[in-house]
């Protein structure tokens, strides 16, 4: 039944044009970054490596598909949550707005099944969006710029990864990004269960993310103590896959924190939805 419901929910989501905003945004933005990199990438790379080149002779192509995909992930990872929110905030509240809860809930399916199938749909959307990001950035990146070693500038060091040592890192980083986006999805989904209009959960989720990011960015003592409790900090830890050696503690910790968020938010959503009076 869940599979059946999931198929239905999936169809519903992908029959709505708003679902394609995310794919369209990624499909336009990423090639724009590619174009920018094509025109200016060498300059910015030169800028980053300026100090290095004083003492070292740098040979080879650092302006490659991997580096650009890495930059794109850095730049876009912050914006993807907004695209996720558009769809996830609508999952439950959209049915309320449209009045279609009445069609669904009067059927012999449990509310738990509805929540589960809708969450799975939100998750699939998040995963597909990241997958789309991965495909667009890596495929176009590699076609236009080729492959090569990846230069990663971390705060404490510069790491150059061998060509053969990169792809798996991207796979895991995208995988981690999916996990992070699933937290965003769960949050929007949670808000979506509270209200009857999709605008509310979309805006609230965006506000939460923006506030968390701002709190993280303001380097003040009081805010610093909040940081470990802000999920937005963990979402960006896909970067840990571009470290050598991998900081497994940090990665596992992040996965657990994000997973915990998903479980808590989903449980809350399920409980709220279970008890909700459908008045729309």
């Amino acid at each position: 039944m869940i599979y059946n419901l999931f198929k239905i929910e999936f169809l519903k989501v992908f029959k709505k044009w708003r679902t394609y905003i995310g794919f369209l945004a990624v499909g336009v933005l990423v090639p724009l970054v590619h174009l920018a990199m094509y025109l200016e990438g060498q300059n910015s790379l030169d800028f980053i490596t300026r100090d290095l080149r004083q003492s070292f002779l740098l040979v080879g192509n650092l302006l490659n598909g991997y580096w650009i995909s890495y930059i794109i992930l850095n730049v876009i990872a912050v914006h993807i949550p907004f695209l996720i929110t558009l769809v996830a905030g609508d999952l439950l509240a959209g049915e309320a707005t449209a009045g279609t809860y009445r069609l669904l809930i009067t059927r012999p399916i449990s509310r738990m099944q509805i929540v589960t199938s809708k969450f799975l749909t939100g998750f699939s959307y998040s995963a597909l969006l990241i997958l789309w990001l991965a495909i667009v950035s890596l495929v176009i990146g590699i076609l236009v710029f080729g492959t090569g070693e990846l230069l990663v500038v971390r705060s404490e060091m510069i790491i150059i990864f061998d060509k053969s040592d990169i792809f798996w890192r991207f796979l895991l980083a995208y995988g981690f990004a999916i996990l992070g986006m699933t937290v965003v999805c769960s949050l929007a989904f949670f808000f979506s269960s509270l209200v009857e209009n999709a605008i509310g959960p979309i805006i609230t989720t965006m506000a939460v993310i923006i506030i968390f990011i701002i709190i993280s960015a303001i380097d003040v003592e009081i805010f610093r103590s909040f940081k470990p409790y802000l999920f937005t900090n963990y979402i960006l830890n896909w970067k840990e896959f571009f470290n050598d050696p991998l900081d497994m503690n940090k990665i596992i910790n992040s996965v657990l924190v994000l997973g915990g968020h998903i479980i808590v938010l989903l449980t809350a959503t399920a409980i709220i939805f279970q008890k909700k009076d459908i008045l729309s």
Binding site: F47, S155, E156, S216, D219
Partner: peptide, 17 residues
């Protein structure tokens, strides 16, 4: 000499020396 010039504004945690 090797400090990053394009630090991520969004992840200030990474900015600590």
């Amino acid at each position: 000499m090797f400090r990053s010039r394009n630090r991520s504004q969004l992840n200030p945690d990474e900015n600590k020396q």
